[in-house]
Design a protein around this nucleic acid. Structure first.
Lengths: 352, 352
DNA sequence: CTTTTTTGCACAATCGATGGTGCAATGACT
DNA sequence: AGTCATTGCACCATCGATTGTGCAAAAAAG
């Protein structure tokens, strides 16, 4: 609290002030002083001085020496999407409750970028890494392996490290079932009336498409390939797919499954160009939850993936050390239309 | 590329291999070798070795020595909200394009937490800090000042450091004007028909409320206090305010201004408990942009704050060093209902 | 009063990179 | 050939913490 504007105090400063040696000061301040048989009185003295001077350890120095940094990384595809930002929020909370510092970075679904970003994180000697939604989890794995960095995959599985992912197949089945049932309330549904938009060549998309097709075939008796429209994870591409369908048919499909909220943004772009009365009767399923998406002017069933549980599980696996590269499934939940779930936001202090 | 699984190579390893001294290796690898008059051939040799062994600098060691870390911090209230997550996305891109590493953390609008988090960041010797939406910017300022850390405020201004904020007054005026005009299409609007929900005792809320009231008074001739319902930044509190109004009046106000997308989530919670036909004719303005919020089943005017411009401006100020604690205003834009804007997501690679 | 044990702490090496300084070897010039 | 400038690099202290080891003083045991 003194020394405003001055350099930060170090253990050497406190060593001078207290008359103790730097190593004693260090031991006192990092808690290992009992083990080192430091007198209680000495510890007290040093701790008081530390408080008085607002001492905080230089974590770079500590990290350098101990080759641990207290940093835990989370690699995301993108930030600005409710699924990932909510994951970031849970991640932060859990990392901090473990006394470490979260480091959330995104890599734009670019395999090259993913590796580069992880290299950077490794250069900061991060202790653990959560790899969420990586395009190339195994490429990232190699980089981590080389550096001896403990890591898990979240959301998209890899072959080489433990993975925790949504049960995409089950989730897709639930979602498809829900869409179908709801659509059938308005009259019989033909296989051509039910489409899927979005997704690409990744594990999650495959599983979701598989779930969709299985349920569709079972319920509607057929499942033409044309009803699967993989557009990648891009709003623009998705919008184009809707536009193309619309041009061909003069309407949208009666019901459809959208692979993620990012693709759902593509639907918004399409809708912006057309009067919404035209589409008042569509039924939509979206594999992701977004509180506003749930209240669009047509029924939107959503899937809420339990990112909090995934993170928790991830830590459990890392703590258990050396887990086998097994894939763990976390069950998502179906969210009916017009549902406002609570989330991490509710933990905010808000005393007016 | 060799040494799979082994420890990371250091300048000492390369020093051995190349026969050059550690300092020479260091100079070569950090680019200062011309200044140090190292022979081109030596540099080449070392660089080849470095590539071959996948050398990357230990940034903790570098940071310790140079007391710069290459880390730039962004302190957010929360992640999972489109405004802040989109800010995080722009921030990341800009930081990385400057060759530094972004460190995005949230502090839950808790002044105590804000200071603690910043202390932690300082312990990692971050080079610069963007303080976004801090409850107590000046408290954070003090902490930064003590550590000699360059910083700017974003979104909420402080008295002690340069601040870059939305022009909340102008934005609120635009938004209010838009709501009123739209509502008047359905018939004359009385002052009691136009409310404001959300906001608390911070600068942004004050300015927005001021803008709202000024326009309302000018357009509708009056501005009763009861029409301002500050609920803080919490979905739950906001939902309660809507519920209370509804219980008292049997309906929602014909038109209202919602202070942020977080408060708009409160409206969703309210809506979830009531049949939506009841509210088909409300007109809403929301001071924040959310792509799904824009397509709700009633007209929602939104304000898009230009977080990218704010970050850019922030860097400009930090680069200019020692800017005076002036507040810079960035103009937001009005987004009409049913509008899907492009965003950072569109920069994603998505080659299927 | 010695010998042994315990207590309490200081010393010094170390983590990996940086940058000021010094010095030998080479080349230029008179 | 002798002087001087330049080139090319090595040496070493340093950043702030951690930790294994050693050793004096105090306490306990004999």
């Amino acid at each position: 609290m003194t020394d405003i504007g001055k350099k930060k105090a170090t253990i050497y400063d406190l060593s001078m002030l207290s008359g103790a040696s730097p190593s004693t000061v260090s031991a006192v301040l990092n808690g290992s002083w009992r083990k080192r048989r430091i007198k209680e009185a000495t510890a007290q003295l040093i701790q008081n001085l530390a408080n008085e001077h607002g001492y905080t350890a230089n974590l770079q120095a500590r990290g350098l020496r101990s080759s641990r940094s207290g940093l835990v990384g989370l690699l995301l595809p993108v930030h600005d999407n409710r699924y990932f930002s909510s994951m970031a929020q849970s991640f932060e909370a859990q990392v901090r409750s473990r006394g470490q510092c979260p480091l959330v970075v995104s890599a734009c679904r670019d395999p090259e970028e993913e590796r580069k970003v992880v290299e950077t994180l490794i250069s900061y000697s991060i202790d653990e890494l959560f790899i969420a939604g990586a395009t190339d989890p195994d490429g990232v794995h190699t980089v981590c392996e080389k550096a001896g960095l403990k890591h898990v995959n979240i959301d998209l599985p890899g072959m080489l490290a433990p993975s925790i992912i949504s049960d995409n197949y089950e989730g897709a089945r639930m979602l498809t079932q829900a869409i179908i049932e709801r659509a059938q309330e308005d009259g019989p549904l033909s296989p051509d009336d039910l489409y899927l938009f979005g997704g690409r060549n990744d594990h999650a998309s495959h599983e979701r498409i598989r779930g969709f097709r299985d349920v569709k075939r079972a319920s509607l008796g057929a499942d033409p390939d044309v009803c699967i429209q993989p557009t990648g994870y891009s709003p623009a591409m998705t919008a184009r797919a809707f536009e193309a369908f619309y041009e061909g048919h003069g309407k949208l499909p009666r019901a459809f499954f959208v692979n993620s909220s990012i693709n759902l943004e593509g639907l918004m772009r399409f809708l912006a160009l057309h009067p919404h009365e035209t589409f008042a009767d569509i039924i939509v399923g979206c594999y992701d939850y977004d509180p506003f998406g749930s209240f669009l002017p047509f029924p939107v069933f959503m899937i809420r993936q339990d990112s909090e549980a995934m993170i928790t599980k991830g830590f459990a696996i890392l703590d258990a050390d050396r887990g086998p590269p097994i894939t763990h499934l976390v069950r998502p939940t179906l969210v009916p239309p017009r549902t406002a779930l609570t989330g991490p936001l509710d933990a905010l202090k808000d005393i007016e």
